[in-house]
Amino acid sequence: MADKGRIKKELTELSRDTKSGVTVEVKSEDMHELEGTISGPEGTPYEGGTYVITISIPRGYPFEPPKMKFLTKIWHPNISSQTGAICLDILKDQWSPALTIKTALLSLQALLCSPEPEDPQDAQVATMYKQDPAKFRQTAKFWTETYAQKSDGESAAISRLVEMGFSRDRAVAALAQAGGDETEAVNKLLSS
């Protein structure tokens, strides 16, 4: 049985903290299902994005790490673009009870600043990161705008593709695949 007292203490501490840019919301009565958010760090392609992370507290916590996964889609070498699964040592064998949900979320924020392409979760993203950094940045930024920003203004490119008669879902998917390049996205849509 995970220690409820500790989880409560951590949540109290988190609710008092308004500076670090991470928040946690309780999703289940037993406090074992949580949802965290981190903001995309400045100066990265993730700037301006808000990322939701599902957090599941295992029975063995704090001797076992919390299970974390990106709910918001993100283009990053150490995070699966399909499932949101994260490759980060402290969520695996380097976890210790000295760490907390907050320090884990802060480590995810740090991971957004410094990707580790040599230890990838998503091979396709890691390859692009290493071989075509400009395209990587463009794609990561487009994914941020498309998936991680509050939908007050739709990207102009999506609107134009929708006007051409493609469904919004297909337009978004094609643009995401093309790293935001509108011409490439149109070609993909027309050839599929």
């Binding site: 500790r6 203490k9 009870p97 000295a98 760490l99 907390t100 320090t103």
Partner: peptide, 10 residues
């Protein structure tokens, strides 16, 4: 530098 909320119970 240890976090109080992590260390207290131990």
């Amino acid at each position: 530098g240890y976090d109080e909320s992590a260390m207290d119970m131990f």
